[in-house]
Design a protein around this nucleic acid. Structure first.
Lengths: 191, 191
DNA sequence: CGGATAGAGTGAGATTTTCTATGCCTTGCA
DNA sequence: TGCAAGGCATAGAAAATCTCACTCTATCCG
């Protein structure tokens, strides 16, 4: 058995663009420029031999084929996400050690994370740091940053504060990207 | 909604290595060197934060986590393959135009593809060529080669002849990689 | 025991892929 | 008409990935 399908980056770009009906919005989600998304989608269309979007001056419109493709691709991504979550390193309820960017502190809820009962169950300690190396060395489980850094081979997820005034980014190994502990932090900061 | 999972190349390497229980065999399937597979898997393990294989001198052994991950990843790849097949360009039963490498002719079944009733229904014409450009320009639907060429953004699938004496490679757009017509060619050459 | 073989790991450098930066074109709207 | 937005093209920069050459360990034989 050998599987045959086009490049994942292309599929990711397509999936995000289709969901947002916009290259620009997709680019923002993926943390790249709209041009990159445009190129990825174009390559994908070429490699499939069909066109997935109609480009209108007002924006994008999925073609019939694109519309049929989207839900299936999304479903596959769901599976990968779930599978990845399931093999997360056995934390066994261990609390996380979280690094926080100096610049971020002013924008965090007052007394964070102490004031939050919810997070008490998930965070062991916080430290001032933006050093990704501490993740690789297992000194930190997660890093809260104030801007996107696009670390290779690490999950970086945007968190938009409830008031919309700030955006945070949480960096972890993929194995921890979807676990209960990480999710709790995201939920808490999203309010 | 935004999906979070590690690089597809890493997952592909893992999936193939796990299936074969060997980096070497996986490398052959993927058309790269064993070193590349080793690096991919290592990166994947690092980015998940767990180890997927135990490396023994005799070969590989999936860890518990690796064993749990494999079937789910395979399933996701299945979905992507199916989805890709389903959006294949509407051939509507159209027959394919196939390019054949000069060097290959001697190794094809005698009188191929004429003598095969099965292929009559799927092949319109064959032409001597190894020019991938003819695929991009839609002059050809598929190309039969005698060696791997690793074309970017095209599906390249190995076909091992029934007698095991020869290997062919069929190159198409991904949209045509799994369609009935292509499958018929693969089946016919595999006997 | 000694040599040959087989599979996996490493690191440097080459190659390929992907991204950014710019500028252009079209449309919609004040 | 002037301007903002969205998408597109292309060249060059940046990053990811692969190959190559070599090492290490274990196994298989004679």
């Amino acid at each position: 058995m050998t599987y045959r399908f086009p490049s994942l980056n292309g599929l990711k770009a397509f999936e995000a663009a289709a969901r947002h009906q916009s290259f620009k919005a997709a680019a923002a989600e993926l943390g790249v420029t709209p041009g990159a998304v445009s190129q990825q989608v174009k390559r994908l269309e070429a490699s499939l031999g069909i066109s997935l979007f109609r480009r209108l001056p007002q924006g994008l419109l999925l073609t019939r084929e694109g519309g049929a493709y989207l839900p299936k691709v999304s479903r596959a991504f769901d599976l990968l996400t779930d599978a990845t979550e399931a093999v997360a390193p056995a934390l066994n309820g261990r609390k996380l050690s979280v690094g926080i960017s100096e610049r971020l502190i002013a924008h965090l809820p007052k007394g964070w994370p102490r004031h939050s009962k919810a997070l008490d169950a998930y965070i062991r300690e916080t430290r001032i740091s933006e050093d990704v190396e501490l993740i690789w060395s297992n000194d930190l489980d997660a890093l809260l940053l104030d801007r996107q850094t696009r670390q290779a081979n690490l999950s970086e997820h945007e968190i938009v504060a409830g008031d919309g005034a700030h955006a945070f980014f949480i960096v972890t190994r993929y194995g921890l990207a979807n676990c209960r502990q990480t999710q709790a932090i995201i939920d808490e900061l999203s309010r």
